[in-house]
Every structure is written in C-alpha cells, then in structure tokens.
C-alpha cells in the first residue's frame, strides 16, 4: 500500500468543485448583493479565513500530524513545444498526514470538525450527498487518489505520543539543566516531583496542545 509508511498514512484527495457560482449572496442586513465570485473562489476565501495553528479546525481532528488545503484551478502550461492542458473543473486539494487507518481518521474528522468540513466542501461536486460520517468517508474515498510513493522522515506513532514526547522533551530538558550538581537525595526527590507533575507514561496529559504555536499556552493538563 503506497499510501502508508508504517502507521503513518498519506491521504491525497482531489475534490471537484462545481463550475460557475451562486447567483446571490445575502449580506448581514438581509439585503441581496450580487456575488461575483465562482464556487472555487468562495472555497478559496473560506480556506484563507480558517484560523491557524491551535485554532484551526484540523487541530480538533484526532491524529492529524500535518495537513493542507488549496484550490487547484488549472494546470500550468510549460511553454512551447509542450502541449497545453486545461482542467474542466477546479479541485479542492486536501492532503493529510496522520496516524492510523483512513476510516477511523475520517470518522474522527467528521465527528470533531463537521462544521468546518461542511463549510469547506459545500460547493464541491456531489458533496450534497454527504449527510453523516459514513457518507463523508465514502465521499472522501471517491476523491482519493493513490500515492505513488510516501516518504516518512519523522515518526509514525500516535499524535498523542508525539505531543507527549515534545512536552517531555521540553520539560525534562528544563529539569536536567536546573538540577545539575544536586546531591543524590535532592535529585531523587526533585525527580519524584517532576515525574508526578509530568506523568511521563500518561500520553493524555499533561502534554502539548495540538497546533500550539507559542510556548506560553502550549501545555494542556489533559482529561
């Protein structure tokens, strides 16, 4: 399975976007304004409006390592003597790198970020048939293209383990530097306190928040 490297999965999807655009848009006052955008442009605007990092809806989706969205509006012409190709539809390109199997992942995506999913995919061809997690999984699978080669240069453990590792790396480094030169008894006591606080074997917490971009609010206690 070329989509997989160990327990890491590389999902690549091309979701066709409807051609044309909506006739009208309602503004906040209920007045009708002409919307001069295409569906592709609307989709792109919605992607651009998504909050980043820890506030991204994808931060809620379990086991997402890294993912991206963009609108493929056409193919690039390489110049003469190359032939010229054009797409007949625009595509939403959604790719994700995650831990685990595809169905579980997509279920998680629907469960934790259905609102964002609906908004992003609203103008994609046949998305109106998506009503629940099951139909979302079916839909994405239809949009999936096979990866020829998937390269993993990182780890394939669960996101919780990755984040716990990062949290521990940060915390233990601090501990090690702060406690250099202590007596055996002091050190042992300090470590006991450290272990009780950081709970190294509990991947649920304390740990780093998915998408944490600043140290000051990176740590979450967990459930």
């Amino acid at each position: 399975m070329p989509n997989i490297a160990g327990n890491a999965y590389g999902l690549t999807t091309l979701c066709p976007i409807k051609n044309g655009g909506p006739p009208h848009r309602l503004d906040e006052d209920g007045a009708t304004l002409p919307d001069n955008r295409s569906f592709g442009a609307i989709l792109r605007d919605r992607l651009e409006d998504l909050p980043c990092d820890e506030r991204s809806p994808m931060a809620r989706v379990p086991n997402t390592y890294l993912c991206r969205f963009f609108v493929l509006d056409d193919l690039i012409y390489q110049g003469k003597p190359a032939e010229e190709d054009h797409l007949k539809s625009k595509y939403l390109v959604f790719t994700s790198n995650f831990h685990g199997d595809l169905e579980t992942y997509l279920h998680g995506m629907w469960e934790h970020a259905a609102d964002a999913v609906r908004r992003i995919w609203e103008h994609c061809v046949a998305f109106d048939r998506v009503t629940d997690a099951g139909s979302f999984v079916d839909y994405i699978k239809k949009c999936q293209v096979e990866t020829t080669f998937y390269f993993m240069g990182s780890t394939d453990v669960s996101l919780a383990e990755q984040l716990k590792g990062l949290y521990l790396k940060q915390e233990f480094s601090k501990f090690a530097f702060a406690n250099q030169g202590k007596s055996a008894a002091e050190l042992q006591a300090a470590f006991a306190e450290f272990a009780a606080r950081t709970r190294p074997d509990n991947v649920q917490g304390p740990t780093w928040r998915p998408g944490a971009s600043q140290l000051k609010d990176a740590v979450v206690e967990g459930p």
Binding site: E48, C52, S56, F69, S154, L159, L163, W208, G211, A212
Partner: peptide, 16 residues
C-alpha cells in the same frame, strides 16, 4: 497553500 495545519508548529522533524 491556502490553509496549512501543523500539529506542532514549534517542532522540526528532528525535534519530533
């Protein structure tokens, strides 16, 4: 890319 999400913006692959 229009939206790029990274679960650990402060970590490089080496760090992970």
């Amino acid at each position: 890319t229009s939206h790029y999400y990274n679960a650990y913006p402060m970590a490089a692959s080496n760090d992970v």
